[in-house]
Design a protein around this nucleic acid. Sequence first.
DNA 1: AAATAATATATGGTTGATCATATATATGTC
DNA 2: GACATATATATGATCAACCATATATTATTT
Lengths: 117, 117
Amino acid sequence: MKMTPEILLKSLSDQTRLRSVMLLMQEGELCVCELTYALDLIQPKISRHLASLRDMWVVIDRRAGQWVYYSINSDLPLWANELLQALLKGSLNDKQHRADLKKIKNMSNRPENRICA
Amino acid sequence: MKMTPEILLKSLSDQTRLRSVMLLMQEGELCVCELTYALDLIQPKISRHLASLRDMWVVIDRRAGQWVYYSINSDLPLWANELLQALLKGSLNDKQHRADLKKIKNMSNRPENRICA
DNA sequence: AAATAATATATGGTTGATCATATATATGTC
DNA sequence: GACATATATATGATCAACCATATATTATTT
């Protein structure tokens, strides 16, 4: 795994991927169906972008039954983390990001709520 | 002028533009012929990418006789500056960036050297 | 079987590259 | 001053590669 400025920028230069990463930064971990709901996009599109982020080592995934959860790769170099922090700061006033966040907060029937046991 | 995460990421997701911005961050200000030399690319390509960066308010230009100098836009929001700093940190160990920097340092006949008078 | 997620396929739009040329500025000659 | 020439830079036109997308289907888990 070799994260470079070029790779990271490329991975974030798509709107859907940027929105996904910003949500992951705020929420920690989300599954495909949650992102699909929050971003209000169709599932194959979300799945594809998440796969792209995973292939570029920006995010990692884990399966929990039917659900696949994605989260930011904690092994990113310091500069990459700093870049993401700066990005989040720039996104906090972003209308789209705020709407995404609100949507996930209001989502009912989240998997997490179901697998408490 | 409205700089957003999306705009900034898009502007930096091209290799030539990224290399240009990293050099500008290190050198402060460079003209087209200097960047053309340092990046070892043809002039129209450099000119186009710089125009793109200018149109997206990442850089500003000023003409000094025959020469047009480009530099990072000092009015960028804080988060954008932080992002660029993080990016530079990630680029310092980058082979390509180091080669670019070395090339500009070794450039003879730089305009700056000629317009001392 | 049902729910969730990933993938195959085809399509169209975007973006970057290159060559040629236009534009801007400076200098030399008459 | 007018004109020719040189140099630096920007832009028009064109093309090809790439990437994102949607629909349909497959894979995985329960």
